[in-house]
Design a protein around this nucleic acid. Structure first.
Length: 806
DNA sequence: TTAGGGTTAG
């Protein structure tokens, strides 16, 4: 009796503690209210009045079980207090009741009080509930302590207990511990296998989930509805539609997929939705006899995630006629929203009382971020009462997406320094790494990589490694990018896309194409981004035949419709051939309205082939869409200037002035001995200016010597063909002091002989500097890598990887 | 009379 009173007392303390700490836990609040409402119910008083005088009245136990099973834990507690002698069965009923209600701390409290104060021994029925509560409370320490007790008492051979432990470890992200439990089980049942299949999926390892499923079948286990639900998720994760369809067929043949099994059907629906198979999804949804809010949510989400905005909203309206949408409906609808619809959803959520809600608010931040409304995203972020790691990640990503790298880095540092339980995770790292890639600083990128290793992030994590591949490649270090790629154990489509793009922007298109073949051989299916990377590779490296071959295979072999981004790369490719009329026809015949990027591509081609007429036409189209496109004005200026059309030069200058457009200041950065040195054209602010200019003169002298004796100097030839006005302009020799040359010279004298010099430039390199860099690489016998605003040029022994087309 | 695995969300 004393023990039961103590338990009740402790339970109250737990309630109070929970009340104080659970303001952020909606679910727990609901349960607390449920308990409080039933504090002194009539049925309890009636049962107590009619109870027998026997010690263990079975009717009381039955009533207790009924209350617990109905979630009426306050009534259950009343009865529990009045019972003469609670045995392990009664305690288990109470622990189960708390666990089912999500009152995990109360369940753990009851267990502790039972074993510590009553002398009653927990049995094999107790532990599955207790372990589930430890998982629910996300308490790894308590769970591990319980695991130790389980081993001590010999319950680890119990299949129910072990299965609970697998789920516990998987839920807390400890897949190695779960695997150890699984491996050491003397016997396994279908639940053990299902727990592993769903567990690996929960920790994000779809490949292992799928592998376990296959192994399960090999071991002679027939998949049940739980297996099907888990493995379909794994198929989506590893992007394996073929296996997903096979499993769907199996589910139909075996009768698992029945028209009234809403959960299995929803899993199937969800799988098709994630693969973009909207018509399959519609067929499944229309065949459902029962549709609950989850099924509707998945269908709304299916339209939203697949760009069927109108259908998503129509589905939402139909849903409203049958049942009440919930907060998840809105979360699913948001990705389909442009800013106007997004704001409407935001208002709807506020009116319906769905806010504050941490997931919905984070989805709103995503929506505002993707719509380019960073300020609105920040307003939502700042007003959030509760912020979790995902909220921070969303805000950081919103900054990065909109090029506000400085703010992203600030926020990231704030999160890093924050004195809280929030620790940046792999998504944070993956979100912030592009900011480092964009900041052009290999040094800072390396520092973050150092942090990642030092802070003991899982260095085999695919998401982190993929981001590192991207960061190193974009910061100019292709070698390190490749090392990170080789480290990825489970290479997903993003891993392959990242490395294909890495080699593409560095001008090694043939390597990209080879990697694409390896990707296909490894069984990873390409997606739209893969082809964007692949076509970029063919375009940058001038691989015309391969480009066409891959472009044509997209739909035919892989069922992927080319998007506007693929047309852009193809246009670049056609542009290289110099056949501008063919390029223009390609634009006219493509199934999209041409964008500024498309016209920009034609403009670049016309510049490279000196066709001012086409250039003027293309520039006009660009400026109709983007009147402040600096690159477009500058390109025209240079073309007119080179042709000596000074009236046109002045006209463009006036136009730029009237539009408030000014030329981007040319900046080049070289990093030496842990410091970044920034140069502008003609810069004389560096402490070693004199030395830099002396080196520049020496290099120019070496180039001239190298050129002597040649029948015809290409540069002299080029100058001799210029008009007198152009020649006058060139004689000023201002290009000789362009920032990229100054940065390169500092790089040459600050790095060891034989080491590569890496320079980053914020604009396109001019022709003369390109020629200078080619020759410098020859006379100094050094590899020089220069990243401009689009690609990396690898200068070596007088040649550039771009093949003189950029 | 009590047990384990299950569908949608950033």
């Amino acid at each position: 009796m004393a023990a039961t009173s103590l338990a009740r007392c402790c339970s109250r303390i737990y309630y109070n503690c929970k009340c104080a700490s659970s303001s952020q836990n909606h679910q727990t609040n609901e349960n607390r209210n449920l308990v409080n409402k039933r504090r002194s119910s009539k049925p309890v008083r009636l049962i107590l009045r009619n109870r027998s005088k026997k010690l263990n009245d079975p009717s009381l136990t039955r009533a207790l079980r009924d209350f617990a099973e109905s979630g009426l834990m306050e009534d259950a507690l009343h009865l529990f207090d009045e019972m003469n002698k609670a045995d392990v069965f009664v305690w288990n009923v109470m622990i189960k009741g708390f666990t089912t209600c999500g009152l995990y701390h109360e369940a753990l409290g009851f267990y502790l009080r039972m074993v510590l104060f009553t002398g009653i021994k927990a049995d094999s029925f107790t532990y599955p509930f207790v372990i589930k509560s430890a998982a629910g409370a996300s308490s790894l320490l308590e769970g591990k302590t319980i695991h130790a007790t389980v081993i001590k008492l010999g319950f680890d051979s119990d299949v129910y207990v072990s299965n609970s432990l697998i789920s516990f470890y998987m839920k807390l992200g400890c897949e190695w511990d779960a695997e150890k439990v699984f491996d050491e089980m003397p016997e396994r049942d279908i639940v053990s296998w299902n727990s592993m299949v769903s567990g690996f999926l929960a920790v994000g390892d779809g490949l292992r989930s799928l592998a376990l499923f296959k192994e399960m079948i090999k071991c002679g286990f027939e998949p049940d509805r739980f297996s099907i639900m888990s493995v379909l998720g794994a198929c989506s994760r590893v992007e394996c539609l073929r296996v997903g369809k096979e499993i769907h067929c199996y589910a139909i043949r075996s009768g698992i997929e029945a028209g009234d099994d809403v959960m299995v059907l929803t899993s199937v629906l969800d799988m098709y939705s994630r693969f973009g198979e909207v018509s399959y999804a519609e067929r499944v949804f229309n065949g459902m006899i029962i549709r609950n809010v989850v099924a509707w949510n998945v269908m709304v989400g299916c339209y939203a995630r697949n760009g069927r905005v109108v259908d998503a909203f129509l589905c939402f309206q139909k849903m409203e006629k049958e049942l009440q949408p919930d907060v998840i409906t809105l979360i699913n609808l948001l990705p389909a929203c442009e800013i106007l619809e997004g704001r409407t959803i935001h208002g709807y959520a506020a009116r319906r009382g769905f806010l504050p809600h941490v997931v919905l608010e984070s989805a709103l931040i995503d929506m505002y971020g993707e719509s380019g409304k960073v300020k609105s995203a920040k307003v939502v972020f700042d007003r959030m009462g509760e912020k979790n790691l995902v909220s921070w990640n969303s805000m950081i990503a919103a900054y990065v997406q909109n090029g506000e790298n400085y703010s992203a880095l600030e926020l990231f540092r704030e999160l890093w320094d924050k004195d809280s339980s929030l620790v940046p995770d792999s998504t944070t790292i993956a979100s912030i790494l592009p900011a480092y890639a964009e900041s052009l600083s290999l040094r800072e990128g390396r520092q973050l990589h150092g942090y990642i290793v030092k802070a003991r992030y899982d260095v085999s994590n695919t998401i982190i490694l993929n981001s590192l591949v991207h960061m190193y490649a974009m910061c100019g270090d292709l070698e390190d990018a490749r090392k990170r790629f080789d480290q990825v154990v489970f290479k997903d489509v993003v891993s392959w896309n990242s490395i294909i793009m890495a080699y593409a922007v560095h001008g090694f298109g043939s390597v990209s194409v080879r990697l694409f073949s390896e990707m296909i051989t490894s069984g990873v299916s390409p997606n739209k981004s893969t082809f964007a990377s692949l076509l970029a590779a063919c375009s940058i490296s001038g691989m015309i035949d391969e480009g066409w071959q891959h472009f044509n295979s997209m739909k035919r072999e892989y069922g992927i419709d080319p998007g506007i981004e693929h047309y852009v790369y193809m246009l670049d490719l056609i542009g290289r051939t110099g056949n501008l009329s063919s390029a223009t026809r390609f634009i006219e015949e493509m199934p999209f309205v041409p964008t500024a990027r498309i016209w920009g591509s034609l403009l670049k081609a016309s510049r490279n082939h000196n066709d001012i007429t086409v250039a003027e036409f293309a520039a006009e189209q660009v400026l109709k869409m983007e009147h402040d496109n600096t690159g477009c004005y500058v390109l025209l200026l240079n073309m007119y200037s080179e042709a000596g059309r000074w009236d046109d030069v002045n006209r463009i200058k006036l136009l730029m002035k009237s539009q408030g457009v000014s030329r981007t200041t040319n900046r080049s950065i070289v990093e030496t001995k842990g410091r970044a040195h920034v140069f502008t054209n003609g810069d004389r602010s560096h402490v070693e200016t004199n030395k830099i200019y002396q080196v520049l003169d020496i290099v120019l002298g070496m180039i001239e010597e190298e050129e002597e004796g040649k029948e015809e100097d290409s540069y002299v030839h080029c100058v001799s063909k210029m008009r007198p006005e152009t020649l006058l302009k060139e004689n000023s020799n201002s290009y000789r002091r362009h920032s990229v040359r100054l940065a390169t010279c500092l790089g040459l004298i600050s790095t060891e002989t034989g080491r590569t010099v890496l320079v980053r430039n914020n604009t396109r390199i001019c022709r003369r500097c390109h020629e200078f860099l080619e020759k410098t690489s020859k006379v100094t016998r050094r590899e020089i890598i220069v990243g401009d605003s689009k690609i990396f040029h690898h200068f070596s022994n007088g040649c550039c990887s771009c093949g003189n087309y950029w």
